[in-house]
Simulated scan of single mutants.
Amino acid sequence: MPGPVSAAWLLVALCAATGAYCLLRMRSGVEEQRRAAGGEALMGFGMAVMAVPATVLAPPRWAWPVYAAVFAAAALRALWALWAARAGGHHLHHLIGTAAMVYMALVMAASPAGHHHAHTGAGVPLVTGALLLYFTAYVLLSGARLVPAAVATGGAGGTGGTAGPGASGWGDRPELARACRLSMGIGMVAMLLTM
């Protein structure tokens, strides 16, 4: 990722921490939460790897197509889950997120060695602009939804407000899952701004 090295390392830390927490969420007793957490862990770690400053680690040219293939497979899985659930919500967001990762990997693969910009300064590419609008709106809406969730669970008897039957503690807290998604949304906006 181009840009200030300190900002890139902060993004790496944020995405890696989010991915690690999502791995912990995979221990949930609720199957749907485990599936969502697995996809989010992949996104978090994938974003952390992509955000490593290019001055520190410049991946070989073949890494970007492999990276795109991994996230294309994740996008197909999200598309299948979206079709099977016949509802939008989180499945649709995960599909858009994985498609954005494929797009960024393809842009990186197509860029000249040592450069991470897909355009020549003639403005923001259409796909990048559309993804920026989507993730900016997502971050704003997620942040607004997170505030009431934190207030509502604060009075839940001190147990932290679990997610219903079969929930097993802090790993199943919905406000923490929302905070993870918000963190990844912020990371996605930051990464798209460098495209």
Rank of each mutant, 00 (worst) to 15 (best):
M1Q: 10
G3D: 08
G3N: 11
P4V: 04
P4W: 07
A8M: 07
A8N: 13
W9S: 08
A13K: 06
C15S: 15
A17V: 08
A17M: 10
G19R: 06
A20W: 05
Y21K: 15
L24A: 13
R25Y: 00
M26F: 01
M26Y: 02
E32H: 10
Q33P: 00
Q33W: 04
G38D: 04
G39V: 04
G44I: 10
F45G: 08
V49M: 07
M50W: 14
V56L: 13
V56M: 08
L57T: 11
A58I: 03
A58Q: 11
P60F: 15
W62P: 00
W62E: 11
W64I: 03
V66N: 09
V66R: 12
A69W: 09
V70A: 15
F71S: 10
A72K: 04
A73R: 00
A74T: 03
A78S: 04
W80V: 15
A81R: 14
A85N: 02
R86N: 13
R86G: 04
A87G: 13
H90F: 05
H91S: 08
L92D: 01
H93E: 06
L95T: 00
I96E: 08
G97E: 11
G97Y: 00
T98H: 08
T98L: 13
A100H: 09
M101G: 05
V102M: 13
Y103W: 01
L106R: 06
L106Q: 05
L106D: 01
S111A: 15
S111P: 07
P112A: 15
A113E: 03
G114M: 07
H119V: 14
H119W: 05
P125I: 12
P125Q: 02
V127S: 01
T128W: 01
L131A: 00
L132I: 03
L133S: 11
Y134S: 02
F135M: 01
A137P: 03
A137H: 06
L141I: 09
V147N: 03
P148Q: 01
A149P: 01
V151D: 02
A156I: 00
A163K: 06
S168W: 09
W170K: 14
D172E: 05
D172G: 05
R173T: 05
R173N: 10
E175I: 08
R178W: 07
G185L: 06
I186Q: 00
I186H: 01
G187Y: 10
V189M: 05
A190P: 10
L192Y: 07
